[in-house]
């Protein structure tokens, strides 16, 4: 089928009459401008970091993102614990929390906080990190799925956070479940300040040209999240919490002094 389909297109494009495909369709090297953008990211001064932070503070409000700034892991963990205590579940009465298995989130050691004792915190299963090809048994998958459905708060990190649009970039990896940022009513994202980028342009330039990013690629699922779920489908009146999370809490951890 593919062959016939493509040959119809070739015919429509007049390929048999000598119209040739362009040779420069796929870029293999960054443009001069993109090189400048890459350098700009690498050599970011603390003044520029501060500017990004101020920009983020400006845009989060209008986008209904709750911004929390803390200077240490401990403070962040305490603040998240307070949030878990304060908020009520949307669908049931029991409080469950799910989270990524991710170095930064692991370092928060939420499970060891006394104020959260009694509240189950479900961690995304990783069967064997060294052997990604080995699938997670479906029973474990199903168990975690049920835990995510039960959870009212999902905690993730993000690869990057774009200051200009409060956009979080999340890629799917082992331990980094897609549903944790989606199914619970409240999405908590924890990001180190150094993961802040100025613009979407910087994000895409990195994803495309940074050697490490290029190697990993976009993965099978890259999600860019800018704010909580929202809809204007009834009389154009903005309502938050259509299908995805009703609230998005963004925790930025500054560099420790």
């Amino acid at each position: 089928m593919q062959q016939t389909f493509i040959s119809t297109i070739k015919q429509a494009l007049g390929r048999s009459q000598g119209s040739k495909p362009a040779e420069d369709l796929f870029t293999t090297e960054p443009s001069e401008h993109e090189k400048i953008v890459l350098t700009q990211i690498q050599q970011r001064t603390s003044a520029q970091h501060n500017a990004n932070m101020s920009r983020l503070r400006e845009v989060t409000g209008p986008l209904y993102v709750n911004l929390h700034e803390h200077s240490s892991l401990e403070e962040t963990a305490e603040a998240i614990a307070a949030l878990i205590k304060e908020k009520s579940p949307e669908w049931g009465t029991e409080k469950h929390v799910c989270r990524w298995d991710h170095p930064l989130i692991n370092q928060l050691k939420l499970e060891s906080l006394p104020e959260l004792s009694g509240i189950p915190i479900h961690t995304t299963p990783i069967f064997d990190v060294t052997d990604q090809a080995r699938p997670i048994p479906s029973s474990q998958k199903e168990q975690f799925r049920a835990q995510v459905e039960q959870s009212f708060i999902g905690i993730t990190s993000a690869d990057y956070c774009v200051a200009a649009t409060a956009t979080l970039a999340l890629r799917s990896r082992p331990g980094q479940s897609r549903s944790v940022s989606l199914v619970p009513s409240i999405h908590v994202a924890v990001v180190k300040e150094k993961k802040l980028l100025s613009t979407l342009e910087e994000l895409y330039t990195l994803l495309k040209w940074d050697p490490a990013e290029r190697k990993e690629g976009l993965t099978n699922n890259l999600s860019l999240i800018s704010g909580p779920s929202k809809t204007g489908d009834i009389e154009l009146i903005m309502v938050h919490g259509a299908h995805g999370p009703r609230e998005l809490h963004l925790f930025i951890i500054g560099e420790e002094q």
Binding site: P174, R178, N220, S226
Partner: peptide, 16 residues
């Protein structure tokens, strides 16, 4: 608000 790039099914080792 949500932009997703989908390249294929869940990769092996991914939980969902």
């Amino acid at each position: 608000g949500y932009v997703s790039y989908v390249g294929g099914p869940a990769a092996p080792g991914h939980s969902d």
